[in-house]
């Protein structure tokens, strides 16, 4: 315990920096994931055959061991933050993609028909009907991706991405528990906080008319 306090006393500035770095690389990766996966997910709902193929590929990607993926990028992108973010980004795509796809697909057929019938263009249907109605499902995907990525970002240190993973690896290499704890505990706290924040956002984005409906139901 005492060593832990000593550690914090001497390293607190660095610890905060590393925590920030950790959050930063995870969130950038999630952000990139959203930019790619949401439009892709919407596009997939417009295609019948290719949808299952692409979702299948994404599923396979998800099962690849994270370390292997990280290592895979070294020859191409070298080491550092960029390859770490890119590797993490791949992991964020699937949950967001899958939720976007199922969310949009889940929008009631009658509402789409109704939208088409009153003269909405394809884009207006996405913007005014499908997207708002699928938003809470999409947000749930983003939330899952964020929590995953905060965990996996510890591995980023393995290819020089920095973050709290640095402490964990040092601790493991030198058998120094205080390093391991200094790395692992903030990661857990961060994951819980991010989950909490996103759950609030998720609730906020559910359209009011739907919230009421759920209360009634």
């Amino acid at each position: 315990m005492e060593t832990m306090l000593d550690f914090l006393q001497t390293n607190w500035q660095e610890l905060i920096f590393k925590a920030w770095e950790h959050l930063y690389i995870s969130m950038i990766a999630v952000f990139l994931g959203i930019i790619v996966a949401v439009p892709l997910g919407i596009m997939l709902t417009r295609m019948k055959r290719s949808a299952s193929i692409i979702i299948g590929i994404a599923n396979i990607m998800q099962t690849l061991p994270s370390l292997a993926v990280l290592a895979f990028f070294i020859p191409f992108l070298g080491v550092g933050k960029t390859p770490a973010i890119i590797a993490l980004f791949f992991y964020s795509v699937l949950p967001i993609l899958r939720n976007t796809y199922t969310g949009i697909k889940g929008v009631n057929e009658n509402l789409l028909e109704s939208g088409r019938g009153i003269g909405m263009s394809s884009w207006e249907r996405i913007r005014l009907v499908e997207f708002p109605l699928a938003l809470s499902v999409i947000m749930a995907g983003i939330r899952t991706a964020s929590v995953y990525l905060i965990g996996w970002a510890t591995l980023a240190s393995f290819i020089g991405g920095g973050g709290l993973g640095d402490y964990i690896f040092i601790g493991l290499n030198l058998y120094q528990t205080e390093y391991i704890i200094a790395g692992a505990v903030p990661v857990i706290i961060m994951a819980i906080l991010v989950d909490y924040v996103f759950s609030i956002i998720e609730r906020k984005v559910v359209p009011k008319g739907l919230k009421g409906m759920k209360e009634v139901a």
Binding site: S114, G117, L128, V129, P132, L133, P207, G209, L210
Partner: peptide, 13 residues
Amino acid sequence: GYVIQQIGLFPHM
């Protein structure tokens, strides 16, 4: 104008 059987009002509007 177009009215369908299942009403088709948008629940989020």
